[in-house]
Design a protein around this nucleic acid. Sequence first.
DNA 1: AATGAATGAGCTTTCATTCAT
DNA 2: AATGAATGAAAGCTCATTCAT
Lengths: 226, 226, 226, 226
Amino acid sequence: MAEAGVAASERRRPAVAGGKRQQNTERIRRALFDAAARVVGELGYAEASIARITEAAGVAQGTFYNYFASRQDLLNQLLPALGEEMLAHIAAEVRGISGEVEREERRFAAFFGFLQQRPAFFRILNEAELFAPQGFRQHFENIAEGYLAALRHAHARGALPGFTEEELEPLVFLLMAMRSYTSMRYAYTEGGQARRPPDALWSAYAKLMRHGLAGTGPAPGKPQKR
Amino acid sequence: MAEAGVAASERRRPAVAGGKRQQNTERIRRALFDAAARVVGELGYAEASIARITEAAGVAQGTFYNYFASRQDLLNQLLPALGEEMLAHIAAEVRGISGEVEREERRFAAFFGFLQQRPAFFRILNEAELFAPQGFRQHFENIAEGYLAALRHAHARGALPGFTEEELEPLVFLLMAMRSYTSMRYAYTEGGQARRPPDALWSAYAKLMRHGLAGTGPAPGKPQKR
Amino acid sequence: MAEAGVAASERRRPAVAGGKRQQNTERIRRALFDAAARVVGELGYAEASIARITEAAGVAQGTFYNYFASRQDLLNQLLPALGEEMLAHIAAEVRGISGEVEREERRFAAFFGFLQQRPAFFRILNEAELFAPQGFRQHFENIAEGYLAALRHAHARGALPGFTEEELEPLVFLLMAMRSYTSMRYAYTEGGQARRPPDALWSAYAKLMRHGLAGTGPAPGKPQKR
Amino acid sequence: MAEAGVAASERRRPAVAGGKRQQNTERIRRALFDAAARVVGELGYAEASIARITEAAGVAQGTFYNYFASRQDLLNQLLPALGEEMLAHIAAEVRGISGEVEREERRFAAFFGFLQQRPAFFRILNEAELFAPQGFRQHFENIAEGYLAALRHAHARGALPGFTEEELEPLVFLLMAMRSYTSMRYAYTEGGQARRPPDALWSAYAKLMRHGLAGTGPAPGKPQKR
DNA sequence: AATGAATGAGCTTTCATTCAT
DNA sequence: AATGAATGAAAGCTCATTCAT
């Protein structure tokens, strides 16, 4: 909202070196946002009351409403913001890999890697559909769109020979499903620390991607670098 | 809602014979259970207050605590009970099919078929993880266990040649993931009526099961019988 | 609400002697109502918080919502209920008086008499228009309607010879105006006790009613009995 | 709303000359005052928050407290200031009329005329008693005093022959009552535009003033010039 | 065993005022 | 003198659970 029109740095007093006021508000906004991510990550959306969030951020309850229109407003922003981080993380991990199957395997593993370094994401992702549906939809579209574009690209290159154009969307959902749902199974946080999935998951996924349930052919093992 | 509870004429009197008493308490327990399923199916767990459930069951609020230890207690029982129904439904549909891939395709479709005839299940399944975690876990184990047993059986028969014993459990999770998650995407209830997924879902799933992302080979189409 | 349909005494269990439960709920409803009247009378609508009302009634805050749908709901009921009392009081005082001017003088004085014995009414009446507009409208219509009917009756008997039919409604408003507004001026409660207007008010009113601003003719003095 | 405040281009710089500073603070005080009148006129006292007033005036919230001790302080000044305007308006309309009854009729009509051209006054007048009691009292005394002086003058001239000296004050209140209260009934603003009372009001008032409830004698009709 | 009213902790949100900049 | 963000008390309302009847 605030950033529309005038550049933030020029909005008030000629600005000596960024403006202390300016910096401070940005710090508080971040503090609230991070506090919310932490609280939701630990306790879930349902327990993420304004009281808890502001306390975690170290500000008064009323301060919250200087930065967000409502509790729901902030809650809706949580997932899309973290989703962008995730996308960037995965994109970085996949860069340079050739072969669609290999890329997909790397994406799958990178997703779990991100969960490892951002444990709060796990719960936020899983609860958002119910507690922050608007934010969830936005995130979902972000991800699905990018995913679909990647598969279409691959399809155009002839990389997914058996599938028709129309089957790509369902395929995206199936792939997202395995990621997301499996994370609930395997990556349940334990004492704030995300659990790592077993090696068998990587190989099972790889085999499924390469040969379906038949699963025959060379088992490539878990992607190395991750 | 209220009409589906205990008939008003039978609500008050203590009942004549001893057996009748038994029956009566069973009837009330059932009424509460069904009312809860209906309410959660329609409005979700969050809106399933004791007030609403008891009203739908046609009993007083206090009566609730003669049958269930707490709201959470009943909520936890919801999914496992419906899950058994689902299991029976799928088992019936798969009976007599040979070929593990064909069986899995049938299971996948039968899951959606069950959703069609029990729309409340959809919401209960999707929200239980958050609102009735204990019930969810129980249900999950029920399903996963049966699923794993089936795959082990198939594996023993040599039906899943590419997979190792340890990979069967992850595989179960991956398969359940696609089912469950896709149902959220495709089977969103619309006005109480469950939407059917598009044909491309069935073929995409079939191809993935038969050949992985390569997807080459004969596309078998959607399972016939339903 | 509750009294609709089934007589209260017959609604539950055959009723031995009124039912302790029954009596109790009635007692609490009354306690809340009276507490609200007291609080509004003393502190005004704006200060009549649920906390204050329930504390004054000696019940928990949550109890309030077993009896009234909302704070506004109770607030809206306050004035009409007291208005009925007032109407009854005035009707009793006017009974048997003949002569329209004499009746009007008696009504005027009876209004102040009621204020004397129900000091809370004063503030409730004066603030309701802003804080309980719905209740105010209902009360206003109650009063204006009865007043208009009385004047029409008098007019039909030839008692208000100079006025046309259409002028009766404005006349009602002018008469109500003097009552109500003057009460604010003269009857300001002082330490919970309503102040009495000076004798000159009665004679000024009487003269105005009898001769207008000309005011000539016998000054009848303040109505005796009251 | 915002456009009526201080011109943006003049808001910042401290002003060059000394006299300019003076003017500037006067301009801001005025802007706040006018903004408050506008906001209260449109939304009522209860909605007239500092945030809204300062926004409408085009200054920061904190600035408010350089000009007024508190929100209540400004609110209390609103009615007396507008009351002076009203007094001037009525005085101008009555000038040159002879005959006390005719003067009173003209005052009555002039009051409604002022409401017509200053619609905000309507709400401010009606709500002030509750939300700005101090300001209301001051205004009331202003008006009543002037009114009483006028009647005393008339009385001294023998214009109100039937009334005693002591009855003049109550009479003033009765007359003010009809004005003020009737304005609430008839002049309710509709879409920002004040509604005009019906013709029957003028004649009913005139008759009451001339002959009391008897009302006999020539009906003079609504005052012409307004 | 059934009733249904009482409880009170907890929630989100508003806003006059303060004060560092 | 002007700014505008921070404050925190207070509001209305909900609901699982208890318990006297």
